[in-house]
Design a protein around this nucleic acid. Structure first.
Length: 823
RNA sequence: GCCCAGGUGGCGAAAUAGGUAGACGCGUUGGACUUAAAAUCCAAUUCCAGCAAUGGAGUAUCAGUUCGAUUCUGAUCCUGGGUACCA
């Protein structure tokens, strides 16, 4: 049963398409099972080994689900807008539309050659008008409901990409895409109010079947913190300001107040004598922030403003400073400094000789000199009426008291910031807004969508959107007052495209709506979503947000888009480093597909790694996959004669046959439970055990005594079980064995527990916790029987000599442990 | 610094409601077949000692709980991921 992988791959791919074997019609699909793998970017690198790992192995998983009766919807598309195509265009002078279309077509072809069972009828491309028309619609829905707004704000600017970035797209102060350093710029940009959904984004996490790690990352990224907002007054001036603190219990220990340097209020109370120093410092931080305000240093800097604040709890007058350790963008941009109980305040107070007053001590201890801030809870001191109380209780009391005085209230703050979606780049969806001098930002009427991206544009990055230079695009009339107006020139962050694509898939081809509620409510949520962990705080957060908004606007009934999430691991270069062109360690799958075939590469990717971990690429194992498949092929060839025989066998089985059926059922059980858990490596190990058992049986039993019915049964099912892992080869085998229907239409076999119960079991005999002997006993033997069997062994007797048995521990079916002591 | 994972043979990895550590595979070694090689088949393979039977050690390190710990508890070290003054 030798095979030519080129021929059979082509043959079966063609057959699958002709017979529409994996096609579904979402209109007729009830009780759906929506499987989605994060769609790729159509880059010039085509499908690389990582893609194969992600898409090939997930296809196996999906084929398995289908054979288990799931009515699978498994679409695929391209996240085609984005910087790489644009940069490629700038470098080589090929239009992004041309290069992405070419790459997408090529990659789609690769998918087909891979033999994946996608619903190709539902493919989409985010850079095509029939898709981005609706991305623009999604934006307008947000805009019309007050969730999109434009504001002047300090934003992250990547000089190399010549565009702004959302907070999530900045990693360690560097651009997530190109790794060059990010600076701050004040610009007027579009934001989406994701912060309005912070609470729901956080609380819903508990209901998701997602990796613990990812939930933790999102939780941390959202960063909810519960505290108190306290109103201070500037001494001698009619200025009030608020500070946010999670430790209102330390309010009596506040010995100064610090403002962020860019806080506009500062200029209203700075004293004349300090004005110059303050302005200097503000200038200085502007410069520093452009270099690396990101690096945390213990060396605190700051300047006294000459003004004083009045602490509302005790009317105490404390100095107001400015320092860059206070962030303008978080809380109120000003903090009450309690050096005794906050590490940053402590460092600052020491640097500038400010007083440190301890107001909490460890319970039962008295006040001492602090060599660092005491941040734990404890017992109140120097806090007037609160003295002696537990600081934990005082948090609430003091907040209540402040509220009664109208000087404060409980407040929740989030670390999450609004999502910046403007990009000063060409290759993205235009933002459907028209700027009119009289009417302001006017949404493009829905019937005018899509705002088509013009093709004849000079798209060299110049710090502002290339569309700005395209007069025919820019000049329009205002939809409201009909006066001349200008289009928004920025394009949408590509994360906007991928934030709703799962809603579009079941609706591909619908030209009247982004998604039809009847279909969407039926098809959503995605039952299994798979993709890389690098999207934990970007795509996965944005998608949840957009879906939530769509639900609140009544377009869908599901609040969470992805019920269950799994991250595949990453295939690294053989040097253990992330594969990249610049490191020269990337590995192409194409050569292996050519030499061994798509099935063998897929099998190796399943077997050689644990799926969620990934690991360095090493091709020394791929040959062994090929050898294994050859062995199975030879076995089937040798046993060809049994396939004409009925596979019905009776109860009259000898021990060899029972043994074979034990391994068969045990392997099947293992594969059945492991595949759903993404443990493809152990699944294949179980199948190899089955092969070994068959081969042992054939060696142990004379050919004329071999039970052909049992063999026929086991071998047929071996092909069935292998088929999700080797889709083409198994189809070919299945056909050769005389089957007329596709093997992928077979129902996954059921485990027969009867054969997993053995009459006689092997047990370990331990002496003082060490395994010394193996005995065989009937199953369900009681303590005495097992003990009797154990002491029959001369080896055990040797250990017992001159010893007393102190204790016997019998774990049924597993072991007997004898605890001995010298007599 | 903080948070979260993880550390098991020469290698990829299995096994955790506490119960025979190393399944399955790679590699290596020996053997069969062959004029020879490849392919295939058989056997061995955690380490140390021993011809062997066998004995001892062993799941990052050190303690602890237990008849019994890769699994539970505490401390330490290392690797990876996240985060970076969030008040």
């Amino acid at each position: 049963m030798a095979y030519n992988h080129h021929e059979i791959e082509e043959k079966w791919q063609k057959r699958w398409t002709e017979d529409s074997l994996f096609s579904v019609d979402v209109n007729k699909l009830d009780d759906k099972y929506y499987v989605l793998v994060m769609f790729p970017y159509p880059s010039g690198d085509k499908l690389h080994m990582g893609h194969w790992y992600q898409y090939g192995v997930m296809d196996t998983w999906t084929r398995y689900q289908r054979m288990n009766g799931k009515k699978v919807f498994f679409p695929m598309g391209f996240d085609a807008f984005g910087l790489p195509a644009e940069n490629f265009a700038i470098k080589h002078g090929i239009h992004p539309k041309e290069s992405t279309t070419k790459n997408a077509n090529y990659m789609m072809n690769q998918f087909k050659k891979m033999g994946v069972s996608y619903n190709f009828d539902y493919a989409l491309d985010t850079s095509k008008e029939d898709y981005y028309k609706w991305t623009q619609w999604v934006f307008l829905e947000l805009f019309k409901n007050g969730l999109a707004y434009k504001k002047e704000a300090p934003v992250n600017w990547c000089n190399s990409c010549q565009t702004v970035l959302a907070n999530e797209q900045v990693k360690d102060g560097a651009c997530e895409r190109c790794d060059s350093s990010v600076i701050q710029k004040n610009l007027n940009q579009w934001f989406l109010k994701i912060t309005e959904y912070a609470d729901k984004l956080l609380s819903n996490l508990d209901s998701l079947d997602w990796p613990h790690k990812t939930l933790a990352m999102q939780k941390h990224w959202i960063g909810k913190s519960t505290g108190t907002e306290i109103e201070f007054k500037v001494d001698k001036l009619d200025i009030d300001f608020k500070v946010f603190t999670t430790r209102p219990d330390t309010l009596h220990g506040c010995t100064y107040v610090t403002f962020a340097p860019e806080h506009p209020e500062v200029l209203n109370f700075v004293s004349d004598s300090q004005r110059e120093a303050v302005l200097d410092y503000i200038e200085q931080t502007k410069k520093v922030s452009e270099v690396d305000r990101l690096t945390v240093s213990d060396q605190k800097t700051g300047v006294f403003t000459g003004a004083y604040a009045i602490n509302p709890i005790n009317q105490e007058k404390v100095p107001i400073w400015i320092s860059d350790y206070v962030l303008f963008s978080y809380g109120t941009g000003a903090v009450m400094a309690v050096p005794a109980h906050d590490e940053r305040d402590f460092d600052f107070a020491n640097a500038f000789d400010l007083p440190i007053r301890q107001v909490i001590v460890k319970k039962g201890e008295s006040e001492g000199t602090l060599d660092k801030a005491f941040t734990d809870a404890g017992e109140m001191i120097h806090s007037k009426k609160y003295d002696g109380l537990s600081s934990l209780d005082v948090k609430k009391q003091i907040t209540d008291d402040l509220q009664a005085m109208n000087k404060g209230e409980a407040k929740v703050n989030f670390r999450l910031r609004d999502w910046l979606i403007s990009r000063q780049r060409y290759w993205g969806s235009p933002i459907p807004i028209i700027h009119c001098d009289d009417c302001g930002s006017v949404p493009v009427p829905e019937d005018q969508l899509p705002i088509t991206l013009p093709e004849n544009v000079e798209f060299k990055p110049m710090g502002e959107s290339p569309l700005k230079a395209c007069d025919s695009f820019m000049n329009v009339e205002c939809p409201q007052c009909k006066k001349p107006a200008l289009r928004e020139a920025d394009t949408l962050d590509t994360f906007m495209c991928s934030s709703w694509y799962y809603l579009r898939f079941p609706n591909v081809g619908n030209n009247d709506q982004a998604f039809e509620q009847g279909i969407t409510d039926k098809m959503m949520p995605v039952d299994k979503y798979v993709g890389g962990p690098e999207h934990a705080c970007m795509h996965l957060l944005y998608a949840r947000f957009v879906n939530m908004v769509m639900k609140d606007l009544g377009h869908t009934i599901h609040e969470e888009p992805f019920t269950s999430l799994t991250h595949q691991g990453m295939i690294l270069g053989s040097d253990g480093q992330k594969m990249s062109k610049s490191k020269g360690n990337s590995v192409s799958p194409d050569g292996y597909v050519e030499d061994y075939g798509s099935d063998i590469l897929r099998l190796y990717l399943c077997f050689g790694f644990s799926y969620v971990d990934g690991g360095p690429w090493d091709d020394s194992g791929i040959k062994s996959m090929s050898k294994f498949v050859d062995r199975v092929a030879r076995l089937l060839e040798d046993q060809k004669h049994v396939f004409g025989v009925s596979d019905a066998f009776g109860d009259d089985l000898n021990s060899d046959e029972k043994k074979l059926l034990f391994v068969y059922n045990n392997s099947l059980k293992g594969v059945t439970t492991d595949v759903v858990k993404f443990q493809f490596n152990t699944s294949i190990a179980r199948i190899m055990e089955l092969y070994n058992a068959v081969s042992d049986y054939l060696k142990a039993v004379d050919p004329d005594k071999q039970n052909q019915a049992v063999l026929s049964f086991v071998l047929k099912n071996l092909v069935v079980i292998l088929s999700p892992f080797l889709p083409h080869i198994c189809e070919e085998w299945w056909e050769t064995l005389g089957q007329s229907k596709s093997v992928s239409l077979e129902v996954w076999p059921e485990v027969n527990e009867k054969f997993l119960e053995l009459d006689e079991i092997q047990m370990a005999v331990m002496i003082n916790g060490k395994v010394r002997e193996q005995i065989k006993v009937a199953k369900d033997s009681d303590d005495d029987t097992v003990f009797a069997a154990a002491v029959k062994s001369t080896k055990v007797q040797g250990y017992l000599e001159g010893m007393n048995i102190v204790k016997k521990i019998h774990v049924k079916g597993k072991l007997l442990n004898l605890i001995l002591k010298k007599a």
